[in-house]
Each structure stands twice: as structure tokens, then as C-alpha cells.
């Protein structure tokens, strides 16, 4: 069992790590790169708590091997804010109280950002279906959906 050396980009920064072949991207992010924003809720792609963006695509970090990250560009919740300026989605999640415990929040934020980059003016149904892979057990989703729609409206106005 020899470790694999991987060079990648994490939230715009060059990053490299050693990992075993079995390790998932989520394992690597959390245990090797100290980025614990992505959470493991299931480890099987059913809950979305580990949502990250790889080369522009929204994925579950638990369903990708760390070794596959070579040469890719990875974006996580830790990269959403610009300095001390929160992303509009982050602000709207707070304004709308769209989180209770907060464990699903990083994944939802990353997933919602990915939606708004493709569809700046989604309707409620589009938001609900896009986020269907992100389980939240606390909120009943109501305030989350409102926060995403409100952030989308604000981002459209700003652009």
C-alpha cells in the first residue's frame, strides 16, 4: 500500500496531499487538508452534506476518490466568502434563519451556489428539485427555499 501524491487546486489555492487509493475526496478534504466544512452525513451520496464543486460540477465528495482530484479545481464552502464579505447566499441563509443545527448548511450553500450560476432566476420548483439531494432534517426546507430565491433576486439586481 503506497500513498498517492496528488496536486490539485482548492478554493483557488494550490494544494497537494498524499492519500491512499481508498480515500475519498471527502476524507482527504477533512483529514488531510483540514477543510472540515464538507460534512459526512451518509458516505453514500444520499444526503449531500459533503457537496463540493469539482471543475465546475456539483458533486458529493464522498463519491469521488481523493486520487481523482489530480489537476482538478475544487471549491468548498470555505471558499464561498470573499475575505470578510459573505456570499449573498450565506447572508440570506442568516437573514431567513435557513439553518437550525447547521450541519447540512455547507452542502446546501455549495449546491445552491451551483444552481444560481446556471440558472439565475429559478422558480421554487427548480430550487426544490436541484436541492433534492441535500437532506435537511431541521427546517422542513421552507426557509432554505426562501433564502435561495431571495439571494437569486438580489444577485440578479446586482448584476
Amino acid at each position: 500500500m503506497s500513498s498517492i501524491h496528488v496536486t490539485t487546486t482548492l478554493n483557488g489555492d494550490p494544494a497537494e496531499f498524499l492519500c491512499e487509493a481508498e480515500e475519498t475526496l471527502l476524507d482527504v478534504l477533512r483529514d488531510r487538508l483540514g477543510h472540515t466544512g464538507a460534512k459526512e452525513g451518509c458516505g453514500t451520496g444520499d444526503c449531500g452534506a459533503c457537496s463540493v464543486v469539482v471543475d465546475g460540477r456539483l458533486v458529493c465528495a464522498c463519491l469521488m476518490l481523493g486520487a481523482e482530484a489530480a489537476g482538478r479545481s475544487i471549491e468548498t464552502v470555505e471558499g464561498m466568502a470573499e475575505g470578510d464579505k459573505l456570499h449573498p447566499l450565506q447572508r440570506k441563509f442568516l437573514d431567513h434563519a435557513a439553518l437550525q443545527c447547521g450541519i447540512c448548511t455547507p452542502g446546501l450553500l455549495v449546491a445552491a451556489k451551483s444552481l444560481l450560476e446556471r440558472e439565475p432566476d429559478p422558480d421554487e420548483e427548480q430550487v426544490r428539485y436541484w436541492l433534492a439531494g441535500n437532506l435537511c432534517r431541521c427546517t422542513g426546507y421552507d426557509k432554505i427555499i426562501r433564502a435561495v430565491l431571495d439571494a437569486a433576486a438580489e444577485m440578479r439586481e446586482a448584476s
Partner: peptide
């Protein structure tokens, strides 16, 4: 098949 995330892969 699966979620948005699954569709990416």
C-alpha cells in the same frame, strides 16, 4: 438517477 450531485458523475 439520483441527485444533481449524482448527475455530475
Amino acid at each position: 438517477i439520483g441527485s444533481t450531485q449524482i448527475q455530475s458523475r
